[in-house]
């Protein structure tokens, strides 16, 4: 028997490992959703404080950076949209801005920012708690680490990512309008611009937007929590957990986003 694993065997092993990982994350999310749907009264006050802190860290404290990226993205996309729509007219300008900023780039860029800031932080924090035996301590006190650590973080990341995406879209569209004023041939009143943007928007866009914020929020928090809670017990496992959390979250969000886009355009 050869000591070197055959490519087929290696592929099979990798596939099983990937499927097992996906199942773990799905189980974590399923368990969390069951808890979340139990209602607010079942979450002790101290758990709600964790939730507030998570929203503050992931949402409020990320606003300046998200705002900056939104302004720059809105400006860049605005210039390109003006150039592309020059001959075709204002309708194409609105469609381009909605397609790029609302349907695609907005949710994706915000998800990347949340992964970089909060996904990595959550994974590192939980891994560090595991290294320092804080999780054992919680469990021994009768505080379920899942209820205390995972549920509020998941809920917090979802709320924050929805809010950040709305803020990103509004800021980037506003930035696009300012660029239109500066670069466009004729001045466009803000009300006309709003009408231009609203025209191509449908209820389907709202569904896409929700799918591209709520699910990535769940995925980012679940993957980060999973990596943190399953990290090794050495201090060198903390950065590894953070890195794995970021890489796997990026892969998951990209896949999900591409899937939703494909489904939306097929539909």
């Amino acid at each position: 028997m050869s000591a070197v694993e055959s490519p087929v065997s290696a592929l099979g092993r990798a596939t099983i490992a990937a499927a097992s990982y996906v199942l773990s994350i799905a189980t974590l999310i399923g368990y969390a959703l069951r808890h979340l749907t139990k209602g607010r009264k079942l979450v002790p006050k101290v758990g709600r404080e964790v939730l507030k802190r998570q929203i503050l860290f992931t949402g409020v404290e990320a606003l300046p950076f998200v705002g900056l990226i939104a302004v720059l993205t809105g400006a860049v996309v605005g210039v390109q949209a003006i150039l592309l729509s020059g001959a075709a007219g204002r309708d194409l300008l609105g469609t381009l801005l909605v397609t790029v900023l609302v349907r695609e780039l907005g949710p994706l860029l915000v998800a990347f920012i949340v992964i970089g800031r909060s996904g990595a932080a959550i994974a590192a924090e939980l891994a560090s708690m595991r290294v320092h035996r804080e999780l054992d301590s919680l469990e021994a006190m009768g505080v379920d680490p899942f209820d205390y650590l995972v549920i509020p973080r998941m809920a917090g990341v979802i709320v924050a990512i929805i809010g950040l995406t709305m803020a990103f879209i509004a800021t980037s569209l506003l930035s696009g309008w300012i660029i239109l004023q500066l670069v466009g041939n004729t001045p466009t009143p803000l009300v006309d611009y709003a009408t231009l943007i609203a025209a191509p928007l449908t209820f389907g866009d709202l569904a896409i937007l929700l799918a591209k914020t709520v699910v990535p929020g769940l995925l980012i928090a679940a993957i980060a929590c999973h990596e943190g809670l399953t990290a090794g017990l050495s201090s060198t496992d903390v950065p590894r957990a953070a890195t794995r959390g970021v890489v796997r979250s990026l892969s998951a969000v990209f896949l999900w986003s591409a899937g939703v886009t494909a489904l939306a355009y097929l539909a």
């Binding site: 924090e125 035996r133 301590s137």
Partner: peptide
């Protein structure tokens, strides 16, 4: 229970650590 390192939660103040089990349970 008090573990080997005390294992207070690093992201809570001393007082919040102290009252955590009481508040939670």
């Amino acid at each position: 229970f008090v573990g080997g390192e005390g294992a207070l939660l690093s992201n809570l103040s001393l007082r919040d650590n102290l009252v955590l089990p009481l508040r939670w349970l």
